[in-house]
Design a protein around this nucleic acid. Structure first.
Lengths: 342, 342
DNA sequence: TTCAGCTATGTTAACGATAACATTCACAAA
DNA sequence: TTTGTGAATGTTATCGTTAACATAGCTGAA
């Protein structure tokens, strides 16, 4: 169909020399006559030669490609993280194959196999929500495929991991509600507990109460998931209690869940933060545009991606040392929904 | 470093048969004894065999990979479009290598070369803003590399193209301002004129005025670019005129530019839409959350990506027929900033 | 019986590049 | 003159897979 591509062999034939000399000339190897080199380069340009990386990869057993698996690309965190990955990769002379699992375990397995069969030099994974066992990751590790998890990690599996300090972030924002505002009865709209960020944020929330000897009510922890509808329904559940049992403040697992909660609160004609204060997590682009701007925790998405890619490249190139779990700090973004007036 | 990978040869040695039989068994080719086939498959599983697509691609001259070049990934349009691309690709058994040019012509050229050397089966391009000549695209077409432009096209170059009907969208929203609200003195904050969407939106704006015999003022067309700051500065320029020359309504080239314009208008203590009505384009996630929700035009980003990928795959597989320029319709999102009260 | 015709399997070459080793040739030192 | 040395270039094998052709062995019809 498409006309045959120019190969090194054509250049060699054209100039009456061997392919090897062509290869040497184009890769700037020593021991090539300056004139030969320039003739080769001129011919390559003239014929529109584009080296075949597939052949190169086959013989060198290196692709200089990093495989990336994300659960979704629409959510604002991942595009940012991907930018960071791309940046680090680009600087080190790598490129990326981006795949996404749509939060589906089967599809995640498929794309991981694709990446492996494509012989990427290493893989960056952010785990899909529905993944229940770690077999595939273990197999990858057994096969010594360089592997770094980012954002959604698998603790204790013996792989590198770059994530955000969710626990500390959740603890700090909860402490803000305790120490600055003195709210009693603080609720948590939690994330799924089989996802590490869901667990750590709940953990941080609990620790803040504990360390400050603040009352903890099991009823005030409701699983909401990561989306707006989940936040809405979880908040509804809390508001079905008699008014004296309502929470005075709510810590949502992320901003979309907080948006859902906002909707539920306003449907009850209650004021934020007057009746119920609310904080989110992730600093969604919409957070500051809400009718009551949302106090939240910014995650360094770009930095997570960049660090993870840098770490993976170190591993690929054999400078990795021991397994590391890198945790990046969050930043508190105080707006109005917590009761402050910045 | 990493322990040698299992190849078809190992399986063959293990079972005392030839590699070819292994290949046939694993690819479900006919003429393989049922028992042999199952022994091979069992051995492949047991040894953790992962076929090497690089070798396969080399011999088959097909990679089943689509290269994608986008100018950025943070903007909301592209993540959506990429989802559409991924979906169409996945369904047809293709995968994607995602690259981005950061709106930089040199980097775009680099990534296109990468994709070519990676021997992707075809390329989807959304052109970077700073690209000034079409040499590279022409070279690709000469080399018969399957190529489909999406969103940001290059008219008349003889390549397929899937885009949004920017002109009709801009015309329609402008006509809304004319016919429903009867605003005189309508301004346009335009996009860069070397980008097709910049040109078409201006074109649609002009046509709306023309066809409705509405006055057109050259002074009321100011180049703003695609970002908030550009919109802000462009609006400032308009507001430096004496008040009687101010526009009564403004059509911004996209929503971020409209957000910038909003800021400029409010800094002058003017009301939207009371003093100046405003409409955007692209239905940014923030548009409905603005203090005055922004009337805008929704672009079917997911569909653009999906269609473009489908068209590319047709081309790759030789069912393309003649060159097509597919144009998808936009949808008007009426909110408050135009003067309506939905 | 004999051979056409089928199935199952094997052998060789190819894809496009590079590594490792081999060769040629010019020039300088002995 | 001879020999050693190093630069420039060539030859062969290889990466892992599949296409194309080759062969062995069996079945069944003439």
């Amino acid at each position: 169909m498409s006309k045959k591509r120019v190969t090194a062999k054509e250049i060699a034939r054209e100039l009456g020399i061997s392919v090897m000399t062509v290869s040497r000339a184009l890769n700037n190897r020593p021991n090539v006559d300056a004139e030969t080199r320039s003739r080769v380069q001129e011919a390559a340009r003239r014929l529109g030669y584009v080296p075949n990386r597939i052949a190169k990869s086959l013989v060198l057993q290196r692709t200089h490609i990093i495989g990336v698996v994300v659960p979704e690309i629409t959510h604002s965190f991942f595009p940012e993280a991907i930018r960071g990955i791309e940046e680090a990769a680009f600087q080190a002379g790598y490129h990326i194959i981006l795949t996404h699992s749509s939060e589906d375990a089967t599809r995640e397995e498929e794309v991981i196999h694709l990446l492996e069969s494509q012989r990427v030099d290493g893989i960056l994974i952010s785990k899909a929500q529905t993944v229940e066992e770690n077999r595939i990751y273990q197999q990858l590790l057994e096969r010594k495929v360089p592997l770094v998890f980012f954002d959604r990690c698998v603790p204790g599996i013996g792989a590198d991991c770059v994530s955000v300090d969710d626990e500390a972030g959740a603890k700090r924002i909860t402490e803000h509600l305790i120490k600055i505002h003195g709210y009693q009865r603080i609720a948590h709209l939690s994330g799924p507990q089989h996802i590490s960020i869901g667990r750590s944020r709940l953990e941080g929330f609990k620790k803040a109460l504990q360390e400050n000897h603040w009352p903890f009510y099991q009823d005030l922890v409701v699983e909401a998931g990561f989306h707006e509808t989940g936040g809405y329904h979880a908040m509804k559940i809390l508001l079905e209690f008699p008014p004296e049992q309502w929470p005075r403040a709510v810590v949502a697992v992320n901003d979309p869940a907080a948006f859902g909660a906002m909707k539920a609160i306003r449907e009850m004609q209650l004021g934020i933060p007057g009746d119920i204060a609310l904080v989110g997590f992730s600093d969604d682009i919409r957070a500051e545009l809400m009718p009551v701007p949302l106090t939240t925790v910014r995650q360094p998405a770009y930095e997570v991606g960049k660090k993870a890619a840098e770490r993976l490249i170190e591993t690929i190139e054999g400078n990795s040392g021991q397994t590391l779990e890198i945790v990046l700090a969050t930043e508190q973004i105080i707006r109005r929904s917590c009761g402050c007036n910045p």
